[in-house]
C-alpha cells in the first residue's frame, strides 16, 4: 500500500514540474498579411531550458512566425493561440510582450538616427521594470552593465553615444541585437538569422555570448540556414518550416541531414 501511494505522488509531482517547465505553446497558428495567408497552422511547444532551431527555405514564413510571436501588428492572426507562461499573449501589444520576456533579434536590425544607444537601452530597461512594478537599476548600475555586455560582445567603446545601428557594419548590427538581449535578459529569445552576415570570428563571439546567457529558466528559438551556428549553439530540437507549417521535427542530427541533402527530399 505504502508503495502505491508513493508512486501516485511521484506521478503527480512529475506532471506539476512538466507544466511548470512549459514556456511557450503555439497551437494551430494561422497568420496573414494583406489578405495572404503565410502561417497555415503552426504547432510548437518550447519548455524552459530548451533550444529549438527552425530551418526552412526562404519565404516559408520563419520571419513571419518570429514577428507574430513578438507582436508585429501588420500580421493578422486568424486562428490558433499563443500561450506564454500559460498566458494568452495574442491580445498584448508588442511592447507588453517584450516586457513579459519575449525578445526578437531581427533578421535586419533597424537604424534609428539621432537616438543614442544609451537613451534607447535606458528606455527599454525602464519600460521593463515599470511593467513589473519594480524599481529600475540606478544610472551607474545601468552603465556598468552596458559596459560589461559591450565588452562580452566585442562592441566598440563609443557604442553608448552612437545612434542605434546607424553606420554599423552588418556584423555589428547583429552583435548589437545580442547586446540588447544581454541587457534585457528575456525569458524567450528568438534569433532570426542572427548568424547571416557574420564572419567566423564574429559568429563565435555571438554564439559564446548566447551560450553564456543561457540558463535553466530561459529558452531560445534559433532561426538559421546553417549548421555552423548549430555547432556552437546546440539545439534540443530542429524543426523544418515549409509553406507556413512545421513539416518535420527531429534532433540536432536533422540539421546535419539537411546540410547534406537539402530540402527536396522533405518537400515531396
Amino acid at each position: 500500500m505504502q508503495f502505491a501511494i508513493n508512486s501516485i505522488f511521484a506521478i503527480k509531482l512529475q506532471q506539476n514540474t512538466k507544466t511548470q517547465l512549459r514556456m511557450l505553446q503555439i497551437r494551430n497558428l494561422h497568420a496573414s498579411v494583406q489578405g495572404k495567408e503565410i502561417l497555415k497552422g503552426v504547432n510548437l511547444t518550447v519548455n524552459k531550458g530548451e533550444i529549438h532551431a527552425i530551418m526552412g527555405p526562404n519565404g516559408s514564413g520563419k520571419s513571419t512566425l518570429s514577428a507574430v510571436l513578438a507582436g508585429r501588428d501588420v500580421f493578422e492572426v486568424s486562428e490558433g493561440e499563443i500561450l506564454f507562461n500559460g498566458k494568452d499573449i495574442l491580445p498584448l501589444p508588442a511592447h507588453e510582450r517584450a516586457c513579459e520576456g519575449i525578445f526578437l533579434a531581427f533578421q535586419y536590425p533597424v537604424e534609428i538616427p539621432g537616438v543614442s544607444m544609451t537613451n534607447f537601452m535606458k528606455a527599454a530597461i525602464d519600460a521593463k521594470y515599470a511593467y513589473r512594478g519594480e524599481e529600475a537599476p540606478s544610472a551607474s548600475e545601468f552603465l556598468k552593465k552596458m559596459k560589461a555586455m559591450r565588452s562580452m560582445l566585442g562592441l566598440p567603446e563609443k557604442l553608448n553615444n552612437r545612434s542605434v545601428n546607424e553606420g554599423f557594419s552588418g556584423g555589428e548590427k547583429k552583435k548589437n541585437d545580442i547586446f540588447q538581449m544581454a541587457m534585457l535578459e528575456p525569458q524567450l529569445a528568438i534569433l532570426d538569422e542572427t548568424d547571416s552576415g557574420l564572419d567566423i570570428d564574429a559568429l563565435r563571439i555571438v554564439a559564446d555570448g548566447v551560450n553564456q546567457l543561457k540558463h535553466a529558466d530561459n529558452a531560445y528559438i534559433v532561426i538559421t540556414h546553417y549548421q555552423r551556428l548549430l555547432d556552437y549553439i546546440v539545439p534540443n530540437f530542429v524543426h523544418i518550416l515549409y509553406d507556413g507549417r512545421i513539416i518535420k521535427t527531429g534532433d540536432k542530427s536533422l540539421a546535419l541531414e539537411l546540410e547534406e541533402k537539402g530540402y527536396d527530399w522533405l518537400i515531396q
Binding site: A70, G71, R72, P93, A94, H95, A98, C99, F103, L104, F106, P109, V110, E111, I112, G114, V115, N119, F120, A123, A124, A127, K128, Y131, V164, Q180, L184
Partner: peptide, 19 residues
C-alpha cells in the same frame, strides 16, 4: 524604427517621443 523600439518593450508613445 517604431516597431524595433516596441519589440524592445518601449511603449508606442515613448518611441514616438524618442523619434
Amino acid at each position: 524604427a517604431l516597431w524595433y523600439m516596441q519589440a524592445r518593450g518601449i511603449a508606442p508613445e515613448t518611441a514616438k517621443q524618442l523619434l
